[in-house]
Each structure stands twice: as C-alpha cells, then as structure tokens.
Amino acid sequence: MNIVVCVKQVPDTATERKLRSDDKTLDRDAADGVINELCEYAVEEALRLKEAHGGEVTVLTMGPDRAADTIRKALAMGADKAVHLVDDALHGSDALGTSYALAQTLKKIGFDLVVLGSESTDARTGVLAAMLAERLGVPQLTFANKVEVNKEAIAVQRVTDYGYDRVEATLPAVVSVVEKINEPRYPSFKGIMAAKKKPVEKLGVADAGIDASQVGLANSWSEVADFATAPPRASGTIVKDEGDGGVKTADFLASKKFV
C-alpha cells in the first residue's frame, strides 16, 4: 500500500505566536517550529498500516525551508521518504490554496491512502482533509479514532458528538485521525541516524503541476483586514475557601444570573 502522510510544521504553542505586521500572515520566525501534534498521530497510524499490510510511507509537507526539521522527525519515526513542497509562490496560501497545492502534488506522486491530522494547532480550520477528498474525488474518512484496511476495503470509526459512526469505503481514500487513535512512537537513535539518509525530494510549484495563479497570499480566497491582540481579561475576585467557598461561588453565579 502506498501511503502518503501530510505533515505540517506549526509554531510551538508553548511560545508566543504572532502575525506579521507587514502581510498579516503567520510569523514563522517568532516561534520555534514543531511538528503539528495531530500529525504525529497521522504518521504513527500510517506506520502501523504499513507494518500490517506492507507498502511504503511517504511524508508530504508544504512549507518553507525550515519545515525540513519536521520532515526529519517524521522520517526518524520510520517513514520511508519525503516530498517537500517548497516555493515562495506558496507563501500565505489559505486553506483552498493549500488543499489545491497538496492535491496537485498527490496526483503527481500517486497514493492509495492519504493520512492527515484532523486539525492543526495554528490554523485550526480542520477542513483540509475534507477539501483534499473533494479535490481528489476520493472517499472522505475523517475524524477517525480507528482505521481498518482489508485489501481494497477501508473502514473507520468517525468520532461524532454522540459517539461514533462506522464508515466504509474503498481505496484510494483520504483519512484524518484524532488524538488517542494511537500512541505515537518516539524516534529511536537508530531511526534518527537512518532519517539523515532517507530521500527527501524538493518540489517547486512548477514541478508539482501547480498553477501559480491558484496559490499564495495574493491569490487567496480570503484576506485578513486587520488584527489586534485580545485585551487581557479583567482580573477577577479570588477568595480562599474557609468552609464557605461553595456558597460564595453560588453568590457570584447568582450575581451574574446563572442561578
């Protein structure tokens, strides 16, 4: 099975994240870049499927040069090779542009299964997998907390508000995974060393068959008009419990008309 796992580099949430004042895009230099956490679950799931069914795992990342670190991390976990889509023309692409660029690349490199994280910690749109399925014309099996493949057949448990839906389809397909589908492995020392020798193919817009007029900030389908740091919350009343903490909280709730 030819599995492609889409991995994104995001700013570390533990550091302060900012937008750039010049073009209002994410300031990638302001914070350390790390692998998007849900993408680790995606890599792990891809590796488990490969271990069970054979085949190959390819990492696909669209992002600036520094995203190479994130690619190495996924390779160190055990992925076989990587494709790094990197081109200045891609800077500032929105979800539609990103999904277009990734879809074009996927068509070019081929796949039986595409695995994504269900959401990224910077954009948090949670729409990319659905958009890829739409663009590629393949089944959408998203928000999975369980994936089973049996030859051409694929089934997932799709997490819902009330529990889960059991969903069936045939390959090729797009899957996105939620946290707790698995426990991502830590790269071993051997894995880290091996990753340095694994092939990473760099593709530019033209190489991947991407029409440059469909990507990048200027061609996005939406724009940021302006932005501002959220005002800090007004400081509240903190009391020490002296046997009446529950009563005092109830008084507060009553003053706000919650009870």
């Binding site: 819902t160 059991r166 969903v167």
Partner: peptide, 11 residues
Amino acid sequence: KAARIVERVKE
C-alpha cells in the same frame, strides 16, 4: 456516496 455510514453508535 463514496463514504457510507453503515452504523451510528450512540454512547
């Protein structure tokens, strides 16, 4: 109709 919901499990 590519991804069919075959069962809805309510917890």
